[in-house]
């Protein structure tokens, strides 16, 4: 799509964010809100510049934790989905439980995990793996089960094996669903990492936030929050890019003759 069309899609939310920041800035000086309650955007930016070096290490720690958790979680989620899809009996037995488990705040298991696995990396990883595993499994299972009946019948008629049907038909067919699962899991995994760091850590953005909280350094907490948000957006965008590339057969310009940003 053209730059103009892209800009046309992007400026309203962009403008809204700028407007919000301006209002925030005005409000803090107008009502003389104290820094420890709500620092102004300018103040936060200043602080970001100052504490930049000490934050690098924490950011890196959170990044590593999130990505490894997400990677393991996504891989397990996809494999479990494949296995459950392949063995219908298991699927019938476990699918309802999977759906139910979506309603359990898995984060609440954090303190328990610490009892079982200690304060090390393992408990934190398990929290993240747990939170991203389920959405991916459920999305992938849905995608696999939704395979077009006519195409499926065609493959059977020409004598495709179970494996051929999976690799040539079901898996590609489920990709859009898998990607929507991955997008959810990406946001979850960052949230999971921060919370895991609250519960047990000596590094990372979650730990940093707790530290600053006890010192009432609200500005620094905001800096950490901004990093988390940026991080989350970047991860989401990368997945969207990957999705566009994987599902490029439906993504060329003729699909959206008017351009504009995609509806997710």
């Amino acid at each position: 799509m053209s730059i103009r069309a892209w800009w046309k899609g992007i400026w309203p939310p962009f403008g809204a964010v700028v407007l919000l920041l301006v209002l925030w800035q005005l409000a803090t000086s107008l009502f003389q809100i104290e820094d420890w309650i709500l620092p102004s955007p300018a103040r936060i930016a200043q602080e970001a510049e100052k504490s930049y070096t000490s934050l690098l290490g924490h950011t890196w720690a959170t990044l590593k934790l999130t990505l490894s958790g997400f990677g393991i979680g996504a891989a397990t989620g996809l494999i479990v989905a494949g296995v459950l899809h392949y063995i219908p009996f298991l699927r019938r037995a476990l699918y309802p439980l999977l759906i139910l488990s979506q309603n359990i705040p898995l984060i609440a298991l954090g303190p328990l995990l610490i009892i079982w696995f200690g304060f090390g990396l393992l408990s934190k990883l398990i929290v993240i793996v747990l939170v991203c595993f389920f959405p991916i499994t459920v999305a992938a299972l849905g995608g696999l089960a939704g395979t077009d009946r006519v195409m499926m019948n065609y493959m059977q008629m020409i004598g495709a094996t179970r494996g051929q049907i999976f690799w040539k038909l079901e898996l590609p067919y489920s990709l859009p669903a898998v990607f929507s699962g991955l997008k959810i899991a990406a946001t979850y995994s960052i949230m999971g990492a921060i919370i895991a760091e609250w519960i047990s850590s000596s590094e990372g953005l979650g730990y940093y936030m707790l530290l600053q909280q006890s010192a009432f350094r609200t500005d620094r907490m905001f800096v950490a929050i901004m990093i988390v948000i940026a991080f989350s957006l970047i991860m989401f965008s990368l997945i969207v890019l990957l999705e566009k590339w994987c599902i490029r057969w439906q993504n060329d310009s003729t699909a959206h003759p008017k351009g504009g940003i995609d509806r997710v």
Binding site: V150, M151, N153, Q156, M157, G159, P172, W249
Partner: peptide, 18 residues
Amino acid sequence: LQGKAGYMPQQPALLPWR
């Protein structure tokens, strides 16, 4: 026995990603 006949269904059923 599957796969003994070539088949063409009512809808073309081409795989969209191929």
